[in-house]
């Protein structure tokens, strides 16, 4: 029987604003090209999450108004199962608005505090609509290589001692525009502001996440090489465009 990656996509309708669908398409494609089965469950507001079934839980970005609905559901319906899942070794990938909700809290532009699920030791503060939004191409140093994408967020994220940044900003703003940190990570939990979509154009990171997720049930699993010529070209071109433009 073929090995299988089981993915839960949380709030696909509410949290999908920046082409997050591309991340799911990418996970599916990179599994199927290697003969791995791919199972996807989409879980909306009100639906329960099984804490021991999935290998990977993905949550994308949203507009502020939708983020409030999601914060409520995370608090009341899915939060406990999500924390339990991570205890069980399930991998979580959270992008943008989803990333913000993985922390301790998100203080909105109006000053309301949305509680996060507390999976990452971080918090996010929106300084108000008068302050600059962090919008643009972003290049991050990660794992000896780069991650490239687009960021668009008003909130500034700060990390506590229990989390480390996912990568170091080479071009762009990242978590808060001050400390060169981008995203946050701890064992099995990845949070980032990069969309664009994130995974298709960052195939090494995509495989890193897939491998971590599969390792829970298939210890020591190695992923086969696949044809990434278009992916690598898109990655290189995006890095070059971001950096080239930064000099002007």
């Amino acid at each position: 029987m073929a090995k299988k990656l089981r993915v839960a996509h949380l709030y696909p309708k509410l949290m999908n604003i920046y082409g997050d669908r591309g991340n799911i398409l990418c996970l599916k494609r990179r599994c199927e090209e290697r003969g791995l089965d791919f199972e996807l469950d989409e879980l909306s507001v009100g639906e329960k999450l099984k804490s021991d079934h999935y290998d990977l839980i993905f949550i994308g970005g949203a507009q502020d108004v939708d983020q409030r609905r999601v914060a409520g559901d995370l608090r009341e319906v899915k939060g406990d199962a999500l924390r339990e899942a991570v205890e069980n070794g399930v991998v979580v990938l959270a992008v943008c608005g989803g990333y913000q909700l993985m922390g301790r809290y998100y203080r909105t532009a109006e000053g309301a505090e949305l509680p996060g699920v507390g999976l990452l030791d971080m918090w996010t503060i929106h300084p108000g609509e008068a302050d600059k939004r962090f919008i643009g191409n972003i290049v991050v140093e990660w794992n000896g290589g780069t991650l490239v994408g687009f960021e668009n967020h008003g909130g500034r994220t700060y990390l506590g001692d229990g989390a480390r940044p996912l990568g170091k900003v080479v071009y762009g703003f990242g978590n808060n525009g001050e400390d060169a940190g981008e995203g946050a990570a701890r064992a099995g939990v990845f949070g980032t502001y990069l969309h664009g979509s994130l995974l298709p154009k960052n195939p090494k990171f995509a495989d890193h996440v897939i491998q971590a997720a599969l390792s829970r049930r298939y210890e020591g699993i190695e992923l086969d090489e696949i044809d990434d010529r278009v992916e690598e070209a898109a990655h290189a071109a995006a890095v070059q465009l971001a950096m080239g433009r930064s000099i002007i």
């Binding site: 591309g22 298709p200 278009v230």
Partner: peptide, 22 residues
């Protein structure tokens, strides 16, 4: 276009062999 490779990648996902089409 400026982001031709992004489009090539998106089209690859739709099933088109775009490596030599940029």
């Amino acid at each position: 276009g400026i982001r031709a490779w992004d489009m090539a990648l998106r089209l690859k996902y739709a099933g088109f062999d775009t490596f030599d089409r940029v």
